[in-house]
Computed example of a mutant assay.
Amino acid sequence: MATVNAIAPGPTYTPGTAGVEEILAQLASTSPARRIAQATELVGPAVFLANDEASYVHGITLPVEGGGTAV
């Protein structure tokens, strides 16, 4: 059975964000983590949602953004 879920990342260092580190730092300063994520930090949540362990998880958007939605 297929599931449909999404990950909503916060400010993250990637090749595509090179050159805008200052903007990312400003965004990250407003979150409880107070830092910019590394792209590798998105892997665990993605693997979980793609794994059979999450077979009963359907239709969610998982924030992976340093706690910004918690404040």
Rank of each mutant, 00 (worst) to 15 (best):
Ala37Leu: 15
Ile36Phe: 06
Pro32Thr: 06
Ala37Trp: 04
Glu22Ile: 10
Ala50Gly: 10
Gln26Glu: 14
Arg35Glu: 00
Ala37Val: 07
Asn5His: 05
Ala18Gly: 08
Ala2Trp: 07
Tyr13Cys: 10
Tyr13Asp: 11
Ala54His: 03
Glu53Asp: 14
Leu27Tyr: 04
Gly68Phe: 13
Arg34Ile: 08
Leu62Tyr: 04
Leu62Ala: 04
Ile60Lys: 02
Tyr56Ile: 06
Gln26Gly: 15
Ser29Cys: 11
Glu22Lys: 13
Glu41Gln: 13
Leu24Tyr: 00
Thr69Ser: 15
Ala50Ser: 13
Ala50Thr: 08
Ser55Lys: 13
Met1Ile: 10
Ser55Asp: 11
Ala18Glu: 15
Asp52Gln: 12
Gly44Ile: 03
Gly67Glu: 09
Ser55His: 10
Thr14Phe: 03
Gln38Cys: 09
Gly68Gln: 09
Ser31Tyr: 08
Val47Asp: 07
Ile23Phe: 14
Asp52Ile: 07
Gly67Met: 08
Ala46Phe: 01
Ser55Thr: 09
Ala25Arg: 12
Gln38Pro: 06
Val20Glu: 14
Pro9Tyr: 02
Leu42Lys: 03
Gly59Gln: 04
Ala28Tyr: 00
Val57Cys: 04
Ala18Met: 12
Leu49Ile: 02
Pro9Ser: 05
Ile23Pro: 04
Thr17Leu: 05
Gly19Thr: 06
Ala28Glu: 00
Gly19Val: 07
Ser29Pro: 06
Gly67Val: 08
Thr14Asn: 07
Asn5Leu: 03
Thr61Lys: 07
Asn5Phe: 02
Ala39Ile: 12
His58Trp: 05
Gln26Arg: 13
Thr17Arg: 01
Ile7Met: 00
Glu21Thr: 10
Thr40Ile: 12
Gly59Cys: 04
Gly16Val: 08
Asn51Asp: 14
Phe48Ser: 03
Leu49Met: 02
Ser29Met: 05
Thr3Pro: 05
Ala37Asn: 12
Val57Lys: 01
Ile7Val: 10
Asp52His: 11
Gly10Phe: 00
Val71Leu: 08
Pro11Cys: 01
Thr3Asp: 10
Thr69Leu: 15
Ala50Ile: 06
Glu21His: 07
Leu62Glu: 05
Ala8His: 04
Thr3Ala: 15
Val43Cys: 10
Gly67Ala: 11
Glu41Pro: 09
Tyr13Pro: 04
Gly66Ser: 07
